[in-house]
């Protein structure tokens, strides 16, 4: 049992490592996600105005909405790259390849999203002139948010992978499922910004629960989901 888990983990790390290596050599997915996040934060803050954008809950919401779309963009780009040179078929032929594909893509997306969150979050702090009351809670909440989004996004992207309308379908499928994660991440970040430690930890716990639940669902169901 332990050997099998260790083997699956190693396969997942191989897929994630391969993804991150490709991203390091040709960082088009990361650059696209970063540019998109920064642009969206600018546009959203312009739309709500300077006074509203400084409110912790509004600033947190703008940041997480931008990050959510960046996650969808990153996952779609990453899996489209697999289709371009038929690399996907190679992975699927391997024993345990489907689980490894889901877990590896989820890990790689979380790592990419971590970088985007760091850059986008720093920008949001400066742009909105925010004061962080609880820095540790903020980092914890953002880190858990970053691992709570990818399982759902990767699962939905894998499902829609062979469809022509995937650009339309992935947001339609993923966004409603991610509403609780979005609420938890926004409220947790806002609580960390405004100094409510108990609320921040509570929301972070919910994000962790969602991350575990959807990773479990993904690993259980993904062998059936990939065509």
């Amino acid at each position: 049992m332990i050997v099998a888990v260790r083997r699956s983990l190693r396969r997942a790390l191989l897929v994630a490592g391969r993804d991150l290596t490709v991203e390091r050599r040709q960082p088009d997915g990361l650059v696209a996600a970063l540019t998109f996040t920064v642009t969206l934060i600018f546009v959203e803050s312009l739309a709500v105005g300077p006074v509203e954008a400084r409110r912790p809950v509004i600033a947190a919401a703008l940041f997480w909405i931008a990050l959510l779309f960046a996650a969808i963009l990153g996952a779609t780009r990453s899996l489209e790259r697999e289709l371009e040179d038929d690399a996907l078929d190679g992975i699927l032929l391997l024993a345990g390849g489907r689980d490894a594909l889901f877990a590896g893509k989820t890990l790689a997306l979380a790592a990419t999203l971590g970088i985007v969150a760091l850059a986008g979050g720093s920008l949001a702090l400066v742009l909105f002139d925010l004061t962080v009351a609880l820095p540790f809670h903020l980092v914890l909440g953002v880190a858990l948010g970053v691992i709570a989004l990818p399982p759902v996004v990767v699962l939905d992207t894998l499902l829609a992978l062979r469809l022509r309308a995937r650009a339309l379908l992935v947001p339609i499928l993923a966004l409603p499922v991610l509403v609780p994660q979005l609420v938890a991440a926004t409220q947790g970040t806002a609580a960390a910004l405004s100094g409510d430690a108990a609320a921040s930890l509570g929301w972070s716990g919910m994000l962790l629960a969602f991350a575990i639940a959807y990773t479990g669902i993904g690993l259980t169901i993904v062998p059936a989901a990939i065509e």
Partner: peptide, 17 residues
């Protein structure tokens, strides 16, 4: 078959809501 499988996966994931 593809449609049914894709829909079944969504049916399992969505029930969490």
């Amino acid at each position: 078959e593809r449609r049914a499988t894709r829909a079944a996966v969504l049916g399992v994931v969505f029930v969490v809501d």
